[in-house]
Amino acid sequence: MNRLRRAAALLAAGALALGTGACAGPGNGSGGRTLTVFAAASLKAPFTELARDFEAGHPGTTVTLSFAGSADLATQLSQGAPADVFASADAKNMAKVLDAGLVEGTPRNFASNVLALAVPPANPADIASFADLARPGVRVVVCAAQVPCGAAARTVQAAAGVTLKPVSEESSVTDVLGKVTSGEADAGLVYVTDVRSAGSKVKEIPFPESAAAVNRYPIAALKNGREADLADAFTAEVTGDRGQKILAGAGFGKP
């Protein structure tokens, strides 16, 4: 019994220590500063590079990146998640955070993204144009209309005068890409940056109708953040020359 009690106490103490340790956050003890950036999932590659640059330019600073769908991040922020900077993949989710009174100053657009047609490397359905997607028997996967890439897919369909009959409407662009890279789908509508990051696992079919839906990415410093000056410096870096160069390298367009 005694041993059990001691074990339980030890367990509880351990759990508490772990919990409080996590709350204190990294870097606080050593006197360094931590900048927390919430960024849309599609920004993963360029923002990881940008953060490394930023850390090199601001010694003693650690940039913590949290990547997720913009809607998820906006929800987390309005529920009180602590962050210094928010980079959204669309204006709508930035507006949510803005309406919640969490934004310091005004959001600035820093990049744009357009849709692209991704097919498996062998292009089994012989897709050469957007209109080919409407051929019977072609398995197309798109995003659902509720998410930004799905809204863009609708706009593009209207512009092209083509109505797609997708076999699946996924809730994230990564899921669409996954269905193409695994060879389950003949084609998928994703962002041009997704095709770029997928490398040789997919082939891009260019289509002019993609210009009908340009998605703009806004960034803003947040009121609840603890590092206001660092947050401003980071947004300046993203919108500045260095940041724009990295974003362009990942396939993003000008804001």
């Binding site: 809607a71 659902a144 509720q146 699946s168 809730s171």
Partner: peptide, 25 residues
């Protein structure tokens, strides 16, 4: 979600619908 996809009336079951609705509503 991983294996079947998500299409109304074909593969979008209630949990998938919840996941999707969460985005907007």
């Amino acid at each position: 979600l991983t294996f079947a996809g998500s299409l109304q009336g074909v593969t979008r079951t209630l949990p998938l619908e919840i996941y999707l609705q969460r985005e907007t509503d």
